[in-house]
Computed example of a mutant assay.
Amino acid sequence: MNVEQARFNMIEQQIRPWDVLDPDVLQLLSLVRREEFVPAALRHLAFTDTELPLKAGRTLLQPKVEARLLQELHLQPSDRVLELGTGGGYLTALMAHQAGHVLSLEPDPELAEAAQARLRRLGLTRAQVQVAALLGGAPSQGPFDAIVLTGSVAEVPAALLAQLKPGGRLVAVVGHEPVMQAVMLRQAGSAEPARTELFDTVIARLPGAVEPSAFAF
């Protein structure tokens, strides 16, 4: 396989048609080697338009979804970012190139250790992976300019919104199969967060996500 041609095709045939047009994001996708974040046995599939299995039901998101999430975050060099669900660490690495610091939480110790080793090997010292449950976030290390969830939730917990700085933004995929939507919630002080609908997609649930009761009383 011609790896660089496959990377080019991924960007031009999958990602750019999904309205990922930010030149800085597109350049990053060319530079950060996605295949290094994919299990060795699946590296021949690193550039395909599909989720890839990691372990125990966890997956690596489609390239176009990760690229779109990155674009929508509009990260700045001074931003402190909280990522919920490191997985393979590819999105973590992309964000570490743009933000001032990325704290990524991962509940699976094996995935966390492997991702941190990859980031260290690539010299991405602005990213830190911690083993932790996800939905509580990291209140003692906040507040954050941006928060991103790499798995879907039925609704965004208020505890996460409370960890945003004023004007900070949270990007998550919310809803239930077969209808989910990526949304941005922007912290507006004491008022309800401003909500922007971004794009439709379906991704696996965030580990630990709680489903609302189906019963009504």
Rank of each mutant, 00 (worst) to 15 (best):
P139Y: 06
Q130H: 15
L134R: 04
R80E: 14
H101D: 12
A117P: 04
T150C: 01
A114W: 11
P77K: 06
P107E: 07
Q62D: 05
A133G: 14
R58D: 14
L119H: 01
G57Q: 04
T86F: 00
E66Q: 14
A67M: 10
L135R: 05
E72K: 12
S104N: 08
L84T: 00
A40W: 10
L111P: 02
A56E: 15
D79I: 08
T125I: 13
P63T: 05
L122R: 15
L134C: 03
M95S: 11
V129H: 00
L61W: 03
R118E: 01
L52P: 08
P63A: 08
G137S: 03
V131S: 03
L149V: 00
L82S: 12
E110Y: 11
D145K: 04
Q62W: 03
L122N: 14
V148G: 04
A96V: 03
P157C: 02
L94V: 11
P157F: 03
G85C: 02
L61I: 05
Q71P: 05
G137V: 02
P139G: 07
V129E: 00
R121F: 12
S78I: 12
L122P: 09
T125R: 15
H74C: 13
E155K: 09
L45G: 09
A41N: 10
L149H: 03
L135D: 03
K55R: 14
A159K: 10
V131M: 06
Q71F: 07
V148T: 05
P63N: 05
Q76E: 14
V156A: 01
K55G: 07
E66H: 04
Q116V: 06
T59L: 12
E106P: 00
A40E: 13
L111R: 00
L149A: 02
A114K: 13
E155C: 06
V65S: 09
S104C: 07
L75Q: 08
T150D: 01
K55Y: 09
A67V: 06
A159V: 12
P109C: 04
Q116T: 07
L94M: 12
A158N: 07
Q71R: 06
G100N: 06
A41Y: 11
E106Y: 00
L122Y: 15
L94P: 11
P109L: 04
D145Q: 09
S78Q: 15
L75A: 06
V81I: 03
